[in-house]
Design a protein around this nucleic acid. Structure first.
Lengths: 234, 234
DNA sequence: GCCTCATTTGGACGCCTGTACAAATGCTAG
DNA sequence: CTAGCATTTGTACAGGCGTCCAAATGAGGC
């Protein structure tokens, strides 16, 4: 017997209005799984942990998602649509800016904002999902990498094209490299937010989204504005 | 086992003297474990896989290292000394440069070169170990994070101090942030070297150490040279 | 009322995990 | 050659894992 969690989050000591999302068990499982995966990675979290955290039965997870991989894919399906839509909108907005300097900064911001902001129109916000992506990517989980590539490569290429338009003098390879570094900086910040605070003795705060966003945009814009990298400069 | 990373162009075909290391079983286990951990992370690799890859018996691993955590710590112990020594040397060298512009670039290079180069004076080179650190760090393995912080924070702070000396006008928080981004870019490149090639249609090569080093140093120097980030600019 | 279908439940399955340990082996010194 | 110690071997263990399934439960249409 496992009488740990009798009944669930829905009829629990919750007031009335806010927790509207917890209608179905399926969503509770998705939410709990995303939370746990983003915190500890994919492999380290067991289906039993997810079951307990969501108040669902172990078998219900299999019933709704088929397998652990299926659960992961469902999480991606839930988020990739809204996130990419948001990024497209922001990119379009940014591209309408005439001044190339301002446009560059706006594009960079549009590129990373949906990954850093807490609200992206879907449950849990974009930051948690972005952290999940970063952590799972680092695990080199094959299925996840395939999904990520399929889902995010097209929009990433659109951003690279937009950047190329701002910086016509740069070889495309340089732009790709710097975009890659930008993604790395975001990932690293999402995975290890506390490191900034530790290295700065609390002067900087890695968990402050606004601060992180301002710092990263500023640094990235400076990097993009640098002249072409001479390969022989090594 | 499969030689998966053809990353290094510099000292590849050494004929006679190098591969004498395989004398003891203990070293064979360390080598195989580092290889596997750096490729797939800590949790995903079982002791049985390590045993098979190293040609050792499962029990021998317990005998030499006590536990799986012990094995991980042994890997860190093997590398952290040489790597930090190398970084200190390079930092000292860099700091002797008079011209602040050249000095900045040299410091950045000294900061990351031991993590990217294949040879750091210890078995397997620094790149594999750095990749291991990046992957394990992303797994949020507690023991590993403790070890990493203990081992690398002091030298990281030394680098930050050196950078501050080159850039006295910058608030320390800005320097910490940009150093953090630099680490993120390196980690991301080590974890996903192929992404650069995919995004650039092969025009850029993420597995080419020299190219990666040149690109990352160039971008980072530009970022460091940027004026202070105004917090209100968000 | 009953029938139906979606969901939930508890448990079982086989496999794999890290660890422990007694026995066998190999090497080195006396 | 033999004694002693370091190392290697094979195996056993207890427990966690993802998956699967038959039975129980629930709610809505007739």
């Amino acid at each position: 017997m496992a009488p740990v969690f009798p009944l669930c989050p829905e009829v629990a000591p919750v007031p009335v209005s806010m927790p509207q999302r917890q209608t179905s068990m399926r969503e509770a499982i998705l939410d709990a799984a995303e939370e746990l995966f983003s915190k500890s990675g994919f492999r380290a979290v067991s289906m039993r942990e997810i079951a307990q955290a969501s108040g669902a039965n172990l078998g219900s997870i299999s019933y709704h998602f088929g397998s652990k991989d299926g659960l992961l894919r469902a999480i991606y399906d839930q988020h990739s649509g809204p996130m990419n839509r948001r990024r497209s909108e922001l990119l379009n907005e940014a591209q309408r800016i005439r001044d190339p300097e301002d446009r560059l900064a706006a594009i960079v911001r549009a590129f990373i904002l949906p990954s850093l902001s807490e609200a992206d129109g879907s449950v849990g916000g974009g930051a948690r999902f972005a952290r999940l992506r970063a952590v799972v990517m680092a695990e080199r989980h094959e299925e996840a990498q395939k999904i990520i590539a399929e889902t995010f490569n097209p929009i990433n290429l659109a951003f690279i094209d937009a950047l190329q338009e701002c910086l016509p003098h740069l070889p495309r390879a340089d732009i790709v490299w710097r975009t890659h570094f930008l993604l790395g900086a975001v990932s690293y910040t999402l995975i290890n937010p506390w490191r900034v605070a530790r290295l700065s003795d609390g002067e900087a705060d890695g968990e402050n989204t606004q601060e992180a966003l301002a710092q990263i945009v500023h640094a990235a814009v400076a990097a993009f504005r640098a002249p072409a990298t001479d390969g022989a400069a090594a």
